[in-house]
Each structure stands twice: as C-alpha cells, then as structure tokens.
C-alpha cells in the first residue's frame, strides 16, 4: 500500500510550503511593513507571521482528507484541554492545557499535537472571549504540541515522568511565556524596544512560573494514566492508524 510514500510526500509538501512562506512571504510582509506601514506596526506584522506559520498545518491537514477517528481524537483532546481550562478558571495561570497538548503530541505525533494545541487555544476563546491574543495563544499551544511530537519521534523526549515534566516546565516557561510576553509587547505598545520587552518579561515572570509549575504538576500526575488511556484507545479501536479500516 502506498502509505509510506504518502507520509513522505506529506512531510516534504509541508517543508516546501514552509520554505516558501519563510523565504518569500514572511520577508515580503516585513518589507511591506517597513515600506508601506512606516515600520511601526509590529503587532500587525507579527500577527501575519504567526498566522503564516499555522497555514501549512491547516493546508496539509485538509489536503490529506483526515478520517473520522482522527478528527474525533483531536476534537476530544482539545475539548478536554478547554474543559480543563474552564474547570480551573478560578486559579489564574493554573491550567492543564499545555500538559494535555504535550501528551497529545507525544501520543499521536507532531501534527496532532499542533492541531490539538491550536484548536484548544482558538475554541477556548469562544468561551473566554476572542481578542488580539487569540492567534498568539493558538501558536504557542500548537508549537509546544508540535515540539513534543518531534522530540518524542527523535527520541529526545521519553515517556517518563521526569523527561515529560522537564520538557513541560521548560516549554511552558520559555516557549509559551517567551512568545506570549513578546506578543503582548507588540499588542500593548506600538513602539518596540528592548526595554519594554524586558519589562514585559519581568512583569510576566511570576505568571510564567505558576503556569510552568502547573504544567509540571499536571504532567507529573496525569502523564502516565493519560498516555496509558490513549494507548488503550489506539490499540483497541485502531485509531490514527493510517489507511486501515
């Protein structure tokens, strides 16, 4: 069956698309921003770039006509993340979303990890309110799921508590915190400077620490049972098993 080559071409198509975006469209956007918008609209430009990075995932996913069970697994995991986010709504930054996204990435691969993260980020804002932060959140959650999947595939991330917790803590603090804080600078002040960026990191420090420790705690308790459950579902019902019926 032509499953393997399909997977190969899928990867290359995304790489190709990503290459076009990175080499052509993103520089073009920046040039457009500098020339036309007088180099002042950081939020606008960064927003476009964030959106570009998500497009290849969406296009590739649509292109390969995913099966019902793939949609279901992604939807269920994203919904659990959103429900989890609202279940802990009274504790600011104490959210299980990143933990669930990482588990999804490890269990179902980088693409599923990205989609679960981005979907959770997007749909949760239907309940909490959309705003200029939505694309940033989508991107951050998505990219953490993507990283988890890639690192697991490369053998750098293991299914052990320690490995997952370390990755969870670091990725929440540096990837999520790092990007969101930079994003909020572009949102709040149209003037970009290293000082404002530094100020934003300082003011966000404790939030990020809480968020990261929440992720670590959730992964510490949930990672093993959740991964077991997902494995059970995969074997019992042959979910996400390309081509099979």
């Amino acid at each position: 069956m032509p499953e393997k080559p399909l997977a190969g071409s899928r990867l290359s198509r995304r790489t190709w698309l990503a290459a076009v975006l990175i080499l052509v469209v993103i520089p073009a956007t920046i040039v457009f921003g500098i020339v036309v918008l007088d180099d002042r609209k950081y939020y606008f430009i960064s927003l476009l770039i964030v959106l570009y990075t998500m497009i290849p995932f969406a296009l590739v996913f649509e292109k390969r006509k995913p099966q019902a069970r793939e949609l279901i697994v992604i939807a269920v995991l994203a919904a659990i993340a959103v429900a989890g986010r609202s279940a802990f709504f009274m504790l600011p930054q104490f959210k299980p979303v990143v933990a669930i996204v990482i588990i999804a990435g490890v269990s179902f691969g980088a693409e599923a990890g990205f989609l679960v993260g981005a979907t959770a980020g997007f749909v949760s804002n239907f309940f909490f309110g959309q705003g200029p932060w939505t694309p940033w959140q989508m991107f951050c959650f998505g990219i953490i799921g993507f990283l988890a999947g890639i690192l697991f595939q490369k053998g750098l991330l293991k299914k052990t508590k320690l490995s997952l917790c370390v990755f969870g803590g670091l990725s929440t603090f540096f990837v999520y915190g790092g990007i969101i804080n930079a994003g909020s600078v572009t949102m709040f002040s149209s003037e970009f400077s290293w000082k404002t960026l530094a100020a934003s990191y300082v003011s966000g420090f404790w939030f990020d620490i809480v968020h990261a420790s929440a992720t670590v705690l959730f992964l510490f308790v949930l990672a093993r049972p959740m991964l077991e459950k997902l494995d059970r579902i995969k074997t019992k019902y042959g979910l996400i098993e390309p081509g099979g019926k």
């Binding site: 969406a58 996913f61 649509e62 949609l71 269920v76 919904a79 997007f122 239907f126």
Partner: peptide, 14 residues
C-alpha cells in the same frame, strides 16, 4: 472543512 468540523465538535464536547 475538516478543521471547521473539529471546531464544531469541540464546541459540542466542551
């Protein structure tokens, strides 16, 4: 279509 169906399902599940 696939992603928007996922959104719809998530909105149903949450």
């Amino acid at each position: 279509p696939a992603l928007s169906l996922i959104f719809s399902m998530v909105l149903r599940f949450v």
